[in-house]
Structure formats: structure tokens, C-alpha cells
Design a binder for these strands. Structure first.
Lengths: 339, 339
DNA sequence: TTGAAAGCGTTACCAC
DNA sequence: GTGGTAACGCTTTCAA
């Protein structure tokens, strides 16, 4: 068994109160006594038991993070942000992976609660109505992070999707593209953020574009879905003489580029492709993907900073914190030469 | 404040002992009393405080994971394995990222100790002599996971690098390649696993190859390092008429393929490239990378399963658990036609 | 089958 | 400046 505060007190011949004082620097202790206690602590290799501490102080210095899957690079980036900022304030991360299951999300919220976490960050990719209910029961700082769907009456951190989509479309227009296809997803699903992205795209086409609104829907948001929509996109390209495709997720864009690669269509020479997100591989792939950088790390960082602030001020906010995005101009989108 | 066991006891008009018994099913409780208690628990929304529980039972159901960086996909995969198996046994993950800093690794081992984790898994990429020392002090199940270096007298989980490297080289030989370059890394560094990989490569060349041993060293293990070694590899290819390059890490292979892409050298038509690891993007890139699959998920899964077993049996092992690997035959390596 | 009480390792309050 | 002690929320003897 490792040494406890009692062992230290006994060996240093002081009371446990005194030992507590020196390890916490909470009240004045005479230099000699302090020195003696410190020596004993060192000798015994005493380390305070954080569990006991938590029990009395009610501060676990634990933040629960429920993620869909840390295998997704963007999720990992968010968690990096959470963890790194958390550590600055001595907070640690209790990690749970839901793999997109609603019941699991709910179960973990309860679990984390029992483990006395001080706040919860949920990185989700689905809509789960019961989450709010569950969270409200526990009166704990909560941040909801979701690239795909929005939830009302909770605190979220994200970029302005309408604006981002608008900017990217304008960028493509500025390159000389006239007919730009937008590949969306989650067709007709409620709470989908695609609503805003499509709006941004339409707004740009409407204001500055010369061609039509060309929109199609992928089945999902994976690389495979991007590959699978390839044929449809190709048809659209031919029919409308489109020169650029803007997809609502990097994964879709990568899948489409792979499809084009397999068909012998050259990106960006034959067609330009733009993504959304700037996930890690987007900069590794050749051609490098032109995309919108969602600042995942910062999203995580802001989320936990907000939680820590709420903990301090003891008031829990709602609403959406908007972070700036960037248009990453890389190889997959080329200029159209005026004829 | 949320309800405690006392609140439940009072409201159900029983003692807290009884309440404890019903929530733990530890001792017989009469049906009527049990029912009443259960009702109150439900009414109050009572959730046992795991912190208090841990304090008395000494079981935190927490496993500490110190990782270099969960942004690396292989690390994320390992953690998935850890977490998923952990959850099967009700264990949760306390995550710490070291970003490759020795002091940070040490600091986290202590921190996790204070947080009363029941075991620690360290996913490292460096050699840190003091780790063993630190761990030995705390007498706690420990697993050391490192793709790059080995440590003696600790429990590790990995594949057999000599064997894997041997198999891959043989595969390349079987494709008809005569002069095969091996790109290593960590030149002359002690405890580097490259030792075994090089040995495997040499063994295969020696037994079945027709060409010379062609070995060069990259500066590190990143994609950039793979790109940077490109020129040297190209020279070697020309000088020895090599037709295949086997690199000790997928990242290096990807960097090299990118280098070749930028030079107009076609993979696998002009040259075959093989990697090591099978990180996530290896299957996404075009051409898809031929590589050795290190079973990251399983490595994590086995690591935690071992810890849980040690916890149960109260004996801590050392040694290296070897897991099977696979040669993933994909697009980046082609056959050499007999002339 | 049930309850009282000790104890887990701390902090925090109250005396001195 | 220091020590004694209640309390945190729970499990676990021990008696009844």
C-alpha cells in the first residue's frame, strides 16, 4: 500500500491537518515544520489520493468527453484541443466512444455523471433528442459538437457554415468556373447543417455566378459515398459542362477524386474539386485538396475553456460560439482560362 | 445537489446499509424492501457516487493511457482497442497526451497514480529510461507500446518485426524484384526496432534474393522524411537498377510516393513501393499502399485485457506478447515481367 | 433480513 | 501555527 497522509503525519510527528496545509499551501506553516513534513513526504514517496480529495472538495478535475470515434482524424484533433487546454487548468479527460449509437451516448452521460466529471463535451454525428433531456437532469456544463447536425438550446462551437460555403463558392467563381456542382448529403434530414451550406452556395451562385444551381446528394459522408456519387457527378458535368465540384465534406471530395483517378479523369486539369473540413489527409493526398478549414483543434480548445469558465462563474450558457474558418487554396482546384 | 444514499435511505425509511445492498445486490434483501428502495431510487434519480465508492473499494475502474498524440491514426486505433475492451469490463480511460516529451510521460505516470488508476498503458515513440523506474515505484499493471523502440523488463505487445520484414521482402522477391532497397531510420540508435527489421530484410535477401542488400536511412519517420529521402533513393535506384523500395514505416512510403508523384515517376509502373504498419490512409491513397498490417486495434485490446487479467490474478508479468501480422498486397507493388 | 458504526484518505472548520 | 474532529458518500464488518 502506498503511504497516506496519516503515515506522513505520524512520521513527521505532526497532525494530519498540518500535513494537509503543507501539501496544499492553504495556511501558514512554520518553516521548520514544513521542511520536516516535506522531507517525510519525499522519503515515503507520498502522493495525495485524488479520489479522497475529490470526495470532500467536490472537484474531480475531470471532464468527460464522449466521441463518436477517435479514429476519425477530426475527432482526434478536437480532443487534442480539449486535452491540451484542459491540462493547462489541471483538468483530465475521461474518454468514451459511442460509435454513433444513441443509447450509448445516453449511457455514457450517466456514467460520466456517476464518475463525478465536472463537465461533458459530446462530439456527435447524429441527432439524439434525448441528450438534452439527460443533460438537463444533471445540471452540469455541457458542450455539443457536431459537424453534421445542429441541436437547439445547447452550447455549441462551430464555424459559420453558410458563410463558409458562400466563400468557397465565390472562390471557385473567382477562378473562372461557371458551372459549379454542389454535392450535399443528408437529404431532407431535419437539423442537418447542409441547410446552411446549400444556402451559402446558392447565395454565391445567385450573386456572382453565371451558371445554374447544380446540386446532388450523396448517400452519406464517407469516402465510399463520395466514390459512389462519382457517376452521377460525371453525368452532371457532361450535361451542364461543369468545371468544378464543391462537396460538403472532405471525405466525399476524396472519394470523388479517387473515382476520377480510377476513370482517368484528371484533377484539377479536367475538373476542379473542393472539399469542406480540412481533415488531416486532405493535405497529404495528391493533388492536395482545396477545402474549407474547420479549426477542429480550436473548437475543442474553446469548448473546454468555456466549460472551465462556466464552472468558475457557476452559470451555464447556451448558444453557438462561431469560430473563424479559412479557405485553403491548394492543388485540386484550378483556374479556368478565358478563351 | 444530487441525491445521496442517505436521501434514499431516509425516504425509503430503511438504513443506508440496506440501500447499499440493493444497489450492489450484495446481500439478500426482502422483496418488499427492495421494491420500495428501488422506487425511491427511481423517484430521486439517485446515481451512486463512484468516487466515494472508489475510496472504500479501492477500485477506480480507471485505466490510464498516456499517448504520444492521438492525432496519429495508429495511436487512435490502439486507443479504440483499449477503450472498447475496457468498456466490456466496465473500465474507463483516462487519457493523457505526452507529445513525445520525456518529462511529460513521467509526470503523467505520477498524475495517473494519484488519480488511482488501476493500470497504465503507455503508447510512446521515444526511449525513456526513467519510465521503468517510475512505474516500479507504484506497483501497478503496466503495458508499454512502442512501434519504434523496445524496452526491456516490461510488458509489451507487438508483432514480430524480424519476421514481418522477412515476409515482406520475400513477397517482393516473389514478385520478381531483384534489387530491393530497404529504407530504414533511427540510424545507430540504441533500442531501435529497426535492428530486427533490417535483420529480416537481410535474411530474405540472403536466402532468396538475387541482388545486393541496399539500405539507406531516412532522418525520421514522417511523411516529410520519406519525401526527403526521395533523391537518395532515386540515385540508388539508378545505380543498382532497383525495382522496389521497402520502407520501414508507412509514413515514409507515403512521402516517397509523393516524391515520385512530383517527379513524374509512376508507382507501381516505374517502381514498386512497400510500407510497414498499414496506417489508415494507406488504403485511401492512390495507388493503395502494399504494406505490413500491424494490428493496432488488437494491440490495444490485448494490452488492456492483459492488465485486467493481471488485476484479477494480482501478479504482474513482463515480456513481449507477439500478435500476428498480415502482408497487405495492394496496388503500390507490381510484378516484374520476365524478359 | 436489517441496522449501527467503523473506515476509506482527504479537507475544512473550530479551538487553542 | 497547530491539532482535533466532523464530514464527504459509500462499503463492509459485526450484532441483533
Amino acid at each position: 500500500m502506498s503511504a497516506t497522509i496519516k503515515d506522513v503525519a505520524k512520521m513527521a510527528e505532526v497532525s494530519i491537518s498540518t500535513v494537509s496545509r503543507v501539501i496544499n499551501d492553504s495556511k501558514p506553516v512554520s518553516p521548520e515544520v514544513r521542511k520536516r513534513v516535506l522531507e517525510v513526504i519525499d522519503e515515503l514517496g507520498y502522493k495525495p489520493n485524488e479520489v479522497a480529495r475529490t470526495l470532500v472538495t467536490k472537484k474531480s478535475f475531470l471532464i468527460g468527453v464522449i466521441a463518436t470515434d477517435i479514429g476519425n482524424s477530426y475527432v482526434a484533433q478536437i480532443i487534442r484541443g480539449i486535452e491540451e487546454v484542459g491540462k493547462m487548468y489541471n483538468y483530465d479527460i475521461l474518454l468514451c466512444s459511442s460509435y454513433g449509437d444513441k443509447e450509448t451516448e445516453l449511457k455514457f452521460i450517466q456514467l460520466l455523471n456517476r464518475k463525478q466529471v465536472e463537465g461533458i463535451i459530446l462530439i456527435s454525428e447524429i441527432i439524439n433528442e434525448k441528450v438534452k433531456e439527460q443533460i438537463d437532469q444533471q445540471n452540469i456544463p455541457f458542450v455539443y459538437l457536431n459537424k453534421y447536425f445542429y441541436m437547439e438550446n445547447v452550447l455549441t462551437v462551430s464555424i459559420d457554415d453558410l458563410d463558409a460555403s458562400y466563400e468557397m463558392t465565390n472562390y471557385l467563381i473567382s477562378l473562372g468556373h461557371k458551372n459549379i456542382i454542389y454535392v450535399s448529403t443528408h437529404e431532407n434530414e431535419e437539423y442537418s447543417l447542409e441547410k446552411f451550406k446549400i444556402e451559402g452556395y446558392k447565395k454565391a451562385i445567385d450573386e456572382f455566378g453565371e451558371g445554374d444551381e447544380l446540386i446532388c446528394f450523396a448517400k452519406g459522408c464517407s469516402i465510399e459515398d463520395g466514390y459512389d456519387i462519382g457517376k452521377e457527378v460525371e453525368d452532371l458535368v457532361e450535361k451542364y459542362d461543369a468545371t468544378a465540384v464543391f462537396l460538403s465534406h472532405d471525405e466525399l471530395a476524396i472519394g470523388l477524386i479517387n473515382y476520377f483517378y480510377d476513370c482517368g479523369v484528371k484533377v484539377p486539369d479536367d475538373i476542379s474539386v473542393a472539399g469542406y473540413g480540412d481533415i488531416k489527409i486532405s493535405q497529404i493526398l495528391r493533388p492536395k485538396l482545396t477545402t474549407i478549414k474547420e479549426p477542429y483543434y480550436d473548437i475543442g480548445a474553446v469548448a473546454i475553456r468555456k466549460i472551465i469558465k462556466e464552472l468558475k462563474e457557476e452559470k451555464f450558457d447556451k448558444g453557438n460560439i462561431k469560430l473563424p474558418f479559412q479557405i485553403k487554396k491548394r492543388e485540386s482546384c484550378g483556374k479556368i482560362q478565358a478563351e
